[in-house]
Each structure stands twice: as C-alpha cells, then as structure tokens.
Amino acid sequence: MIKIANVSKNYGDFKVLTDCTTSVSKGEVIVVCGPSGSGKSTLIKCVNGLEPFQAGEIIVDGTSVGDPKTNLSKLRARVGMVFQNFELFPHMSITQNLAIAQVKVLGRKQDEAMDKGLKLLDRVGLKAQANKFPGQLSGGQQQRVAIARALAMDPICMLFDEPTSALDPEMVNEVLDVMTELAQEGMTMMCVTHEMGFARRVANRVIFMDHGRIVEDDEKEAFFANPRSERAQQFLAKILHH
C-alpha cells in the first residue's frame, strides 16, 4: 500500500531524513517512534506530500508522491491524516468540519455529506456535539472529530502524526480507543506516537528512528523483547519506566 524507498530530505546542509526505506502493507498497523527531532513526523508528512523530499521514492497505492506530474490533491483526498494539534477549522461547526471536504473535494451532495458525518460522529461517540464549534470541545473530543473528518473521505489508509501528544493525560485513552477500533477493523495505519502501550496492543511492526535514519524496523514482538540497536534500547528504557 505504501512503499518508501531510499528517501532523503535536507534543509540546506541539515539532513532531516537519510536513506529511509520501509513499506506498509494493506491492513497493517505501523508505529513510528523515536526521540524528538529524529525525523519521524517529517517522514510521515512525506507520505502524503505535505513535505517535499529531495531523493528516493514514495509510492502510495501505485501513485508516486514525488513525481511532479502527480496530482497531489487527488492523492491526499484518499489518504487520511490526523495532526498533533487537531487542526479542526475553528470557524466551522463540527458538522461543517466533517462535510466540507466531502462536498468540495469529492463532490458529494451536502445532505449525503452531513449524513455520513453524523454517522462517523456517532461512531467516535460525539453525536451530541454535532452543532458545536471546535473551541467548545475538549482536546480529546477535537481529536476524535479530526479522526472522523479524515474517515469521512473513505481513505485507503490513515496517517497519524503524534495524535495524543497535545492531549491532557486523561484524554489520551479516548483517542487511542478510537484508533484501536479502527485498526481492528482492518484500516491500514501509519502512526507516529510515543504510546508504547498502543504499539504493543495494536501494531504489527514498529519503526524506530534516530537522526533521520530508520534504525529499527521490526515485528513488534521482536522490537519490544529484544531491540537490536543500543539507541532503541536506551529509548525504550527511558520511555517505559515512566
């Protein structure tokens, strides 16, 4: 579904990504972790072309992301993305947030888009909030709406960029629950997250990044039981003892 081959990216002399190669099969859930500044968010943003890259190739469902001839908007409409800071549109109600791209990008009818939005809102447990505005919702609720907004486009896969990092601790689980359910339904997912409990429960594979390189790319059992690199061992030791 997603193929990342020898991708490198730099800002001037500073190398953000160096020769990253991995892939995600249909239905697979991949967790990408690593210390801050390791390039994990940048990598995931390269997958839908939000960040350009200078070398290598990324293929999503047969379409090359780096190819200048690719219609990126069309590709992005099929790839859901959830951001650290939710990024709901604050000037629109929750239902409008859910409907707008369905109508403007997919050309669905307003009623149809609203129905679809309400169904997804119900699924993430927020039907009662339909007519509110994002500012009236808690962080956890906003992130669940953001997930529903992405799902409304019927994406072929979902990208999560630290979806719980900006949340108060007591709200993390409500978001992870939605993600877990999604994974169990067979959604292809690539998640940048520090939630190792989520990785243990849900992930098929774990990718560990450091200094812009993919240091480990393992089945989750192998990763947690016996990380090969010293850097990953240190990282796990730190993060798990909290």
């Binding site: 908007s73 990024e87 990008v105």
Partner: peptide, 23 residues
C-alpha cells in the same frame, strides 16, 4: 492563521485555492 490549518486543508485533498478560500 496557523500553518497547520493549510496543512489540514491540503491533507483533506483541497487545492491551494480551496484551502485559501474556505479555510
């Protein structure tokens, strides 16, 4: 307006013009 808003609109498949005009 935060850059993330433009990114979110683009990620939903909106063109540059749509993102500017609607978001």
């Amino acid at each position: 307006v935060s850059k993330g808003q433009m990114a979110a609109a683009s990620a939903l498949g909106m063109t540059y013009g749509q993102s500017m005009r609607l978001v």
